[in-house]
Design a protein around this nucleic acid. Structure first.
Lengths: 328, 328
DNA sequence: ATGAAAGCGCTAACAG
DNA sequence: CTGTTAGCGCTTTCAT
C-alpha cells in the first residue's frame, strides 16, 4: 500500500502537502494537481488507522441495538446510516442480543477503536455507560431512556399504549388484553401503563391484572402469552401487542386457531413490515423507527461537532393506523 | 486515557512488558500481577488503533450486504457475528443498498481501516473486487457467486426453484407462475431456471415466458408482479416467489383480493420469519441463511489464519417445508 | 525474561 | 503556501 511519502516523492512535494491535499487545507493548484495525479497512479488510499491514531478520533460511530433481527431496529439503523454517511461517517452496527455483557464488550471496542460517538438502545436497565461516558464521548440513547445524563430520543410510549387500547374499545371490543415486553424495560412499562389507563376509565369492571402479560420482545414471547390468554376461563376478545414481534406471535396463534383478526381484535404497537394479513384486519400504531434513527444521528453529530448544551430528550409522536384504514 | 507507558510506570516495568502481558507472551508471574493491578487501577484499555497501525491488521471483518432490512441477510449476519465474536473478531455491518458505488465506498473503508477480511453478498454482477483483492485481503462471497477467484458459499438455487415448482405441481396446481429477482443476479436466474425446468417437463403445453416475471428483491417488486400476473387473460393458479420479500408482496396482493393461499398456491424460496399466515397455507423452501453466515465466517477466519489452499465454493442444501406441514 | 528503541502512516505545530 | 519534525500508542526486533 502506498503511503503519503510515496505520493510525496512522486509528486515532488513534502508529505505534509500531500496530507493537506487530502484534508482540504490550502495548497496551490499546481501542487494539488500533481498530488492527485501521483495518488491516482499509485492507487493511494489514505490510511485511516494512522489518521485516527494521530487525531485521536475517527469518523465512525457505533450503533448498539438489542436485536438485529428485529425490523424495527434495522429500520432505525437505516435512518442512522443515512444521515451518518451523508456526513462522511460510517456506522458500525453492534448487536448486543439484549445481553449487558455483550453490550459492554462493544462499548469497550468503541472506546478502543476511537469511535467518535455511540447511539445505543440499551439492553437492559442495568446497562452500564460509565466507562464510555468517562471518556467524554457523546452518547445518544434511542428507543429506551436511561438513568444517565445523556441525550435521548424516545417516543410517546404511554400514548401509544393508550391509543391502541382506545381504538379497540372504539371498535366495540370489551375484554382487551395486553401483552407487553419485559416489565423492567421502560418502554414496555410505559406502553402497558397507557393501556391500563385507557382500560381503567372505559372498563372499570375488568380485572386488568388478569389480562396483562409480560413476555420477551420476541415472536415466541407473543405466542406463549397469547396461548395463556386464550386458556383463560374468560378469554379476551381483543389484545394489544406491546411490540411488532409480540404482535406477530399473537396473530400467529390466533390464526392457527381460526380466530383470525378482526374476529379477535388486535392492535400492535409497531409496524408489521412483512405482514401478509389484509391491511384492514389489524390496528397498527406506527412507530417512527427511521425518524428516531435520523434524529439520534443528528444529535450525535451535533455533539461530536462540539455542541455543549445541556442534554435533551426528544419525544417522537406515533401515528395510529386503525384496522379499517386502507393501506398507505 | 491511560497508555501502556502509564501502566508501565505504575507497575515499575517497561512498556514492552506491559504489551507482552496483554499479548500473552511469556512474562514472570509477579510482573504479570503488577501489570494487571496497575492496569486495573488506571482503567487501562489497550488502544486498538495504535495496535492496528503497528500490526497492519485488525481483528475486524466487514460484512457487506445489499439490504439490511431483509431478515434473510440479518439472519446471515447473526451467523457471521456468532463465529466471529467467538474468535475475538468484531464485524462491521455495511449496507450497500444494492448500489455498486456504496459498496465500493465500504470496500475502500475496509482497506483503509485495515480490516482483515471481507464477507460480501455482492450488489450486482458489476461489483468490483479488484482493489480489495489487490491488497491481498481474503474475501468470501456469500449468497451470490462472483466471477472472481475467491471462496464462496452459495446454496442450491436451481434445486430450490425446481422443488418449489414440483411441490406446487404435486399439490395439483396447473398454471404455476414465477416471480423472481433481477434477471442479472445469478441466484435469481438459477432459481428461475429450476422452476422452468420443472415446469417444462411437467407442463410442456404452457407458455412459460408469459408466466415469468422479474422484479426487485423487495416487497413492492412482488406486489407489482403479482398484480400483473392476475391481470393476465388466463391468470396463474399458483406462483413461486423468488425470495422472501417477493413472497410477502405476492401474498399481500392475493390476500387483498380474497385469493388467500392455498386458494391460489404459493411457494416461497426463503423463509417468512414474521408471517402471520397459517403455517399450512404456503410452501416454504427454507434457506440456510444462518448456516451460510457461519460457514462463510469460518472460511474467512481460516484464510486470515493463513490457509492458502485453492479457493473453493461450498454449496448448501435447502430444506423444503410443504404447505401441509406442521409448524416446526 | 526483560528493556531500549525504532517505527507503523499520518497530522499539526512551527518555521520560513 | 510549503517543508521539517515530532509524536499519536503500540509491537517487535535486538540486545542483555
Amino acid at each position: 500500500m502506498a503511503t503519503i511519502y510515496d505520493v510525496a516523492e512522486l509528486a515532488k512535494v513534502s508529505p505534509a502537502t500531500v496530507s493537506r491535499v487530502f484534508n482540504g487545507t490550502s495548497v496551490s493548484e499546481d501542487k494539488v494537481a500533481a498530488v492527485r495525479a501521483a495518488a491516482a497512479t499509485l492507487n493511494f488510499t489514505p490510511n485511516r488507522t494512522a489518521r485516527t491514531l494521530r487525531r485521536q478520533s475517527s469518523e465512525v460511530i457505533a450503533l448498539v441495538i438489542p436485536d438485529i433481527e428485529n425490523p424495527y431496529f434495522t429500520e432505525m439503523a437505516r435512518g442512522v446510516e443515512d444521515v451518518a454517511s451523508e456526513a462522511g461517517y460510517s456506522v458500525v452496527l453492534c448487536n448486543s442480543d439484549a445481553q449487558v455483557e455483550k453490550e459492554a464488550t462493544y462499548l469497550r471496542i468503541a472506546i478502543a477503536e476511537h469511535m467518535s460517538g455511540i447511539i445505543i438502545a440499551t439492553a437492559d436497565e442495568t446497562s452500564n455507560l460509565d466507562s464510555i461516558l468517562a471518556t467524554g464521548r457523546p452518547v445518544v440513547a434511542v428507543d429506551r431512556s436511561t438513568t444517565y445524563d445523556v441525550d435521548g430520543v424516545v417516543m410517546a410510549n404511554r400514548a401509544a399504549g393508550a391509543s391502541a387500547a382506545k381504538d379497540l374499545l372504539g371498535a366495540g371490543y370489551r375484554r382487551i388484553a395486553y401483552i407487553g415486553g419485559p416489565e423492567h424495560i421502560d418502554t414496555a412499562a410505559e406502553r402497558a401503563a397507557g393501556w391500563r389507563a385507557a382500560m381503567g376509565s372505559a372498563r372499570p369492571e375488568l380485572d386488568l391484572d388478569e389480562l396483562e402479560r409480560f413476555a420477551t420482545f420476541r415472536v415466541d414471547g407473543g405466542r406463549a402469552a397469547m396461548e395463556e390468554l386464550l386458556a383463560l376461563a374468560e378469554p379476551p376478545d381483543a389484545v394489544v401487542a406491546g411490540n411488532n414481534l409480540i404482535g406477530v406471535g399473537a396473530i400467529q396463534v390466533l390464526t392457527e386457531r381460526g380466530l383470525t383478526p378482526p374476529e379477535v381484535g388486535v392492535a400492535v404497537i409497531g409496524s408489521l413490515p412483512f405482514t401478509t394479513l389484509s391491511p384492514t384486519a389489524v390496528t397498527v400504531v406506527r412507530l417512527p423507527a427511521r425518524h428516531m434513527g435520523v434524529t439520534a444521528a443528528r444529535m450525535l453529530l451535533d455533539r461530536i461537532g462540539g455542541d455543549t448544551q445541556p442534554s435533551r430528550t426528544v419525544v417522537l409522536r406515533n401515528e395510529i393506523q386503525p384496522a379499517s384504514a386502507v393501506r398507505a
